[in-house]
Design a protein around this nucleic acid. Structure first.
Lengths: 197, 197
DNA sequence: TAACTTTGCAAGCAATTATTTACTTATGGA
DNA sequence: TCCATAAGTAAATAATTGCTTGCAAAGTTA
């Protein structure tokens, strides 16, 4: 009966959830299976989280604290907008590839549960990414580097399709997705929209 | 005790599933709730479908027969590629907006269940759309209308982000999504990538 | 050492799941 | 009109769900 602190167990539980999602699908994320994955009893899970929903919300908070805050910093740098946009996109892609279960959790769990708290968090994650992208593009246009005729919010909607496409490709072909230079290839494409003609 | 033929009940059951998904979320799609929505007993459902999974697969088949086959026709027309691309995109967008539950079903249920048969069908739906888009773009390039330097498969990946973005926007803001001219706006953006410089 | 808190477990909870059962009744062609 | 078939039901099925309980033992602080 090895004992670990709640902090550690919380991390183990969140990691277990993501592993199960990526390996077996969202349906298999039951408290019973989480317990088995961590190596503790089912009841113990409720020592560290008050409900299953709290686990999911905690993972979404991790995304906000890790990814979104990192993206915010990138977006607000004062390096050239082109560099910022490239880093911005690649950081997102890298994060999604390295935290595999997260993409499925984000884009499926909220529409599965239809839970208000989850949808609010997902909305924040999604719209933050959009708005921070808008910031970079607006800067580039204001600096006279990019085409001022580009509708920035529409562009941001199209931009958000990139991580979403990546997500679906990963769901459909789990391991063998061709991620080589994925962000560079997508970056080159969208840059053409921004270029002055 | 009104009685209807299996054909009719199957349509009612599929429609009920989509209604429940859009109104209450995927989680509420239980045989009990489907029965209530249709107005029959739970057991009756199994007179018309051999399992719940068969209902989902039947809806996916509808997408293949209705949307994908329509897109195939559009893609293979011999009208100008620009017209074809515009119609192609708008048909997809219109279909997704008019069949609300379908977007959630397609992009969430497969990753929820992690079922091979479902993933195979989703893969077919997704890749057909991609390949048919590739066909239109390749035609445009071959006719000397568009930039031959555009990497067509990368472009198709970016293109697929459009329906995916639409899906997420609809999940996040159910009714009040600004769908006005959505396809025209997205079309104008991606056309800039294709234009010769 | 004593007292207290935290972490652990096995067992049990009520609720829900998809599906099957055994039986009834309506419909449509002979 | 007869009768097989198709379409309906209520109720029971076994399995699973998230979560709670009661109690034991490990860690921490005094």
């Amino acid at each position: 009966m090895e004992r670990k602190s709640t902090n550690i167990r919380q991390e183990e539980i969140k990691a277990a959830v993501l592993s199960i999602i990526f390996r077996d699908g969202l349906k298999k994320v039951s408290t019973k299976n989480i317990a088995k994955e961590v190596g503790i009893s089912e009841g113990s899970i409720f020592r560290h989280f008050k409900s299953k929903k709290e686990i999911i919300l905690a993972i979404m908070d991790d995304v906000i604290n890790d990814l979104i805050e990192d993206l915010r910093r990138t977006s607000l740098e004062n390096s050239p907008p082109a560099d910022r946009l490239y880093n911005y996109l690649c950081k997102t892609v890298t994060y999604l590839i390295e935290n595999k279960g997260i993409t499925i959790l984000l884009f499926s769990e909220a529409s599965y549960e239809n839970d208000n708290e989850m949808i609010t968090k997902l909305n924040y994650i999604f719209n933050s990414q959009k708005q921070l992208a808008v910031k970079i593009i607006s800067d580039g246009i204001a600096m006279g580097l990019w085409d001022e005729a580009v509708p920035v919010t529409d562009f941001a909607t199209l931009y958000m399709g990139i991580p979403l496409s990546l997500n679906i490709e990963m769901v459909l072909s789990r391991e063998k997705f061709e991620r080589n230079n994925f962000c560079k290839r997508m970056y080159d494409l969208i840059l053409k929209i921004l270029k002055k003609s």
